[in-house]
């Protein structure tokens, strides 16, 4: 474990807590893409199948359990408890356009052709594009609540910090995982224009609104 990975995990945890707080406080999931949350639940489910078969550390296990539980709880809130506030008209990105190509790629490009390894690879590739429905929704509505932009900033920062973690592990541990690094870079690049808007607008107290 290194400081970048710990900061990354904390940023990821913060993002999830911000989202839950937003929905709980405002009793609404307006502006949030349910499809992205479904994709995240799929990412955690397929990545953490080794939850009971390989024990890394207490930290690793508890974080995995929390990520899985919070992702399904978020879906419950969006599609059940606060269903009336779910904006399905603007959440119109076709998830199959992401899941199918990513599923095919996981079969073709992986470290080893084993079920758990292919599912892990699928989860890594899927996570890199899972935010697209959310970014698509923000571009369609043309704006996002400030709390939602904080959520996206924390979520985007987590994988950016993981990139620093991989650089660190390459030089200090000799560890390098090409699949995770490439997918992590793609994932972070997708946030670039949002990061720009967040830093130039939200941090100046303005609302996040995309140029029409």
């Amino acid at each position: 474990m290194n400081v970048f990975r710990l900061l990354g995990d904390m940023s990821h945890l913060l993002a999830i807590l911000i989202l839950l707080l937003k929905m709980w406080k405002t009793r609404s999931c307006a502006g949030i893409s349910g499809k992205t949350q479904i994709l995240f639940a799929l990412v955690f489910t397929t990545r953490y199948l080794d939850l009971f078969s390989s024990f890394i550390s207490i930290y690793n296990t508890t974080m995995k359990l929390f990520f899985i539980a919070s992702s399904y709880f978020t879906i419950f809130l969006m599609y059940s408890k606060f269903k009336a506030t779910y904006d399905s008209n603007h959440d119109s990105f076709r998830m199959e356009f992401l899941v199918v190509p990513v599923g095919g790629l996981a079969f073709l490009v992986n470290h080893e052709f084993l079920p758990l390894e292919i599912l892990w690879t699928f989860s890594i590739y899927l996570e890199s594009v899972a935010i697209l429905p959310q970014l698509f929704m923000v571009s369609k509505t043309g704006e996002a609540e400030t709390i939602t932009s904080h959520y996206l900033f924390a979520l985007g920062s987590y994988r950016l910090l993981y990139i620093f973690n991989w650089v660190y592990r390459y030089y200090f541990d000799g560890f390098f995982d090409l699949i995770a690094v490439v997918a992590g870079c793609v994932q972070t690049i997708l946030y670039c224009d949002f990061f720009y808007l967040y830093i130039t607008k939200v941090l100046k107290g303005k609302k996040l609104s995309l140029p029409a």
Binding site: S54, E112, I179
Partner: peptide, 10 residues
């Protein structure tokens, strides 16, 4: 890239 079966990252 060596064998990275035990993925120790979240």
């Amino acid at each position: 890239t060596g064998k990275t079966f035990t993925h120790d990252e979240l």
